[in-house]
Design a binder for these strands. Structure first.
Lengths: 332, 332
DNA sequence: GTCCGGCTTGGTAACGTTCCCATTCTCAAC
DNA sequence: GTTGAGAATGGGAACGTTACCAAGCCGGAC
């Protein structure tokens, strides 16, 4: 019923618990014969080492566990990132605790508190819009933190992002080059850093063409596909409807594309690529970012911190790629 | 540098560690004044309880951690399931360790061993094609196991699946009703239980119409979108090419749809719905299953087992829904 | 004054493991 | 025969926490 312990194995093998510890952990200083007897007892009892107790006692600190905190694990973008992080962790013999925040600072705090209480070696964090002062204490206690996708306000840690502003600017510039002047912006919460950056890129491109931003064409706070579809309907009901759309994440893009038909003559550029995006009509151009690279880069940074890198925090910016589909097609 | 412990808090508050323990865990028997002093010391030192040490000592066994083992966390289907599981766990104050197996029995063993070594209370498992005898020992040790999406061969545990065979049969019956007789089957590894079931459903439908299965139209082992696209190309190069396709998971469906153009006159039904599947051409009908319900149901089962339910293993089968798109459109 | 019950508090041991050191043994070299 | 080096093994303490029980204190009832 109860799990066997080293003491049980020791009794069965006729040695001391200490010897079992050494044998099970593959440490030197155990004769082959003893090792065999121990292994036999281990198999017979179905013994497995309790790694929690182990991590408690070990001098070499560390639990070989990291926490991954994302906005929403179900979002394909974060799902790809999570998988990539998990692969890196697995390669290193490290486990991954996951948590979704829903962009709620309260839930973020809860999840992170639960993770640090379990003594994770590090946190890979897609920070919410809330403050992150509460991370100072765990960080002084040795928990390493790396931010992905967005920086955390007032937190000096490694951060991996993409060139959101430049990517958005290039996307809108492409639409301007197609002759559009009424380009709508459909975005998520303005509080989210990526959204502010992408909005800035949108304004950059308009400004470069001397076009003033039309507030009626700018919609923020779209949290779901249906929000996006509703915003699109409202935009098209305007006296001067937009002739092109810039959507700032995959969810919004999907909401918009779901509401458009093949007959609709609107040019759309969306942030984030997704499967079969190239098979839609009207054609959908995208600013593509690589969530796998994002996750892997962040994981590498985190692990090098865990391994003792104490240099100044780094900020890594990965590049996006504009993929043009439909008329005017050429990559850039 | 080092994390403060209860002893440190006790010293700072001028009480014993035992009192700190009670205060921090919100147990009764601490006077309001003492509780306030302890809380003050906790805040001042930035103390956080070490839950690993706690779980080691507690009589009430359990680490409030479960392990989720899926085929591939990046697959949208499993991503949705994972999110749903995480939500249930969060509601219960439980953490989730995740691992992907890639359908490799070796990696599955590694991941599960690492999870049980951390004393997880339960495992939510999408089993690989390998055997699962190695789970007997941890289960006797108290680790509860629930299988999702597929059963594990020779393992008497709760299992949550969908009606794969009936769903596939209905899908192919729909194609037959459209007048097709040459219906190709494009599937993943035959070793995977869901794939065998879906293949059986495909045969059921053909048999009911007195149509013999044509081995040339049946392709197994498609592991990626490009595998599926290649298989489609080969099928279309046949002397008697298929006029309709049945694809048995989202990846294969995407591979096929990515290779088809709007001009192609082929009827396609795929297992698994996905975003914007309704906006493709040729139109794509799907057998839709609900990964969120799958995850939530499995999580509920697991938690009731963890809470002490010792009844005989249950098998829950959720229903799929055929969503017909294009000609002959009507749900069922 | 004695006794009792309730409330608060603390001391000690233990969870399962590993660190640190001491002990034993073997074999070779002087 | 003594010494010593090296390998194998074990004993005790400790990691940070909680279970268990004992002790102190207070007020009230007899």
């Amino acid at each position: 019923m109860k799990r066997p312990t080293m003491k049980d194995v020791a009794r069965a093998a006729g040695v001391s618990p200490m010897t079992v510890s050494r044998a099970v952990s593959g440490e030197p200083g155990v004769s082959p014969g003893t090792a065999a007897r121990v292994e036999q007892a281990v198999r017979q009892l179905g013994y497995q080492r309790n790694d929690n107790a182990r991590n408690l006692r070990r001098k070499n600190p560390g639990t070989s566990t990291i926490g991954l905190v994302v906005d929403d694990l179900a979002n394909p973008f974060y799902a790809l990132m999570a998988r990539s992080v998990e692969d890196e962790a697995h390669r290193r013999g490290c486990l991954v605790l996951v948590g979704s925040t829903n962009d709620e600072p309260r839930r973020e705090r809860e999840v992170i508190a639960a993770f640090t209480a379990r003594q994770v070696d590090g946190l890979l964090l897609v920070p919410t819009i809330g403050g992150h002062g509460f991370l100072k204490q765990p960080m002084e206690g040795g928990t390493r933190v790396v931010c992905v996708d967005r920086p955390a306000k007032g937190l000096a840690v490694d951060t991996v992002t993409v060139d959101n502003r430049a990517g958005a600017e290039r996307a809108v510039r492409h639409l301007l080059a197609q002759g559009h002047t009424r380009i709508a912006y459909l975005g998520d919460r303005f509080g989210i850093w990526t959204q502010r950056e992408r909005h800035a890129g949108y304004r950059d491109a308009l400004a470069a063409h001397g076009i003033p931003e039309d507030p009626a064409l700018v919609r923020h706070d779209l949290r779901s596909r249906s929000d996006a579809a509703a915003a699109l309907a409202a935009l098209r009901a305007l006296p001067g409807p937009p002739t092109a759309l810039f959507t700032t994440n995959d969810v919004i893009t999907m909401g918009v594309m779901g509401a458009l038909g093949p007959a609709d003559r609107v040019d759309v550029v969306g942030f984030d690529d997704f499967p079969l995006a190239d098979r839609l009509s009207p054609p959908l151009s995208v600013v593509s970012q690589d969530p796998v690279a994002l996750g892997a880069t962040a994981a590498h940074l985190l692990f090098s911190r865990i391994d003792g890198d104490r240099s100044a925090p780094r900020s890594v910016v990965l590049l996006t790629r504009l993929i043009v589909r439909g008329p005017g097609q050429h990559d850039s």
